[in-house]
Nucleic acid binder design. Sequence first.
DNA 1: AATATACCCGACTATTTAGTCGGGGTCAAG
DNA 2: CTTGACCCCGACTAAATAGTCGGGTATATT
Lengths: 212, 212
Amino acid sequence: MVSSITERQKELLENLYRYIISTGYPPTFEELREQLNVSSNQSVIDLLAKLEKKKLIKRNESQARSITILPLGYEVLGKPPIAPFLGATSAGVPLQAIEISGEWQILSSQVAMLQDNVFLLQISGDSMINAGIDDGDKVLVKSQKEFVSGDVVLAKVGDESMVKRFISEDKPPYLYLKPENPKYEIIYFTEDVVLEGKVISVLKNGQWRMIS
Amino acid sequence: MVSSITERQKELLENLYRYIISTGYPPTFEELREQLNVSSNQSVIDLLAKLEKKKLIKRNESQARSITILPLGYEVLGKPPIAPFLGATSAGVPLQAIEISGEWQILSSQVAMLQDNVFLLQISGDSMINAGIDDGDKVLVKSQKEFVSGDVVLAKVGDESMVKRFISEDKPPYLYLKPENPKYEIIYFTEDVVLEGKVISVLKNGQWRMIS
DNA sequence: AATATACCCGACTATTTAGTCGGGGTCAAG
DNA sequence: CTTGACCCCGACTAAATAGTCGGGTATATT
């Protein structure tokens, strides 16, 4: 049962979410005050108190920038609770303590949206082995519109999706996609080539590595 | 190329990471000072300055709790950059602006570790339909050891992994797993049953919903 | 011997940030 | 027409937090 929430309270919650997602840490009352376009920080405090009473957020008294969004808050927003969620686990007294054991069973899954613009997918093929991205690795892809030469990108060429290195030069052929494996060929830009996003990070053997 | 980092600097970085992951927001200098067991906050400032020079973290001057870990920092830690990463994108001037278009191509992927104890997997079967978890949905599972009655859990029964509701009562049969679909049967606890983790959230139609 | 680097100390100040007080206006429900 | 919920105002105080200053020690390098 999702608790009722007023328009204004939802506005505040959405502003809070946006701030955290875009900066990596929560805002001050003052910053929220500006975004809500009110002139007193007391107004913000009042609204926050209501969200807290409804268990959508949690504050730590007299600590700067310590507002966190609780699971219920993410539910109202319809957003994944991944980022700050781990910190915001609402306390629950365990009735029972049970040992867990064994290895994780690998189940099948498809590409998944993790945040607004971030996707997780699995690499198939060996066209990027020289960049340390191998068949079966998982990569984190961020959907974006601007790219720099050298970015590893997820590209759609016709109907096919692929991961290549994007190169932009000031002489012909100007723009092309370079596989990091000599056995594959360069793909030049035509109207069939669209860049979907940038590969941010690779998961291999349980370790994440950044893509420069 | 991972920049060289001293033991002490790595200690600081690890403390920073732990704090952010467990609270949802960055620590103050004072809190880091305590964790590093030094008596002057200047010591912390010095170390932070070095991490910042090496582009492992980023600070915002004169803002409380505004330290974020940069991609390079996550690489040194070997941790996924999911949570605070989106906020900590290091600036990069775009050489080229290219429109992206089209829908996301669905590629195949397997279960993936997102954080230390958080996994993403896809549900197969209809045993939880009454709990709003359907075949093909993706769920976020947190590996943990303590559960409360009513939790939706990922359980391993013999060789098989399944998602059920965990029930603990003070009268026989005490402990059992209850499918949220009357067409399946209750599973009583034996030594073959181990609980792997708790289902935190479900992804359905691009929207995340919390599991109570 | 001189220089640099990494790490640290303690007292202090400046600024940011949370919190308090005592109100007001509107709107819908009883 | 009173009550309560919701949202808001402005001036203020208290506390948390970042930042500054002027040092020190040890270790390795030139």
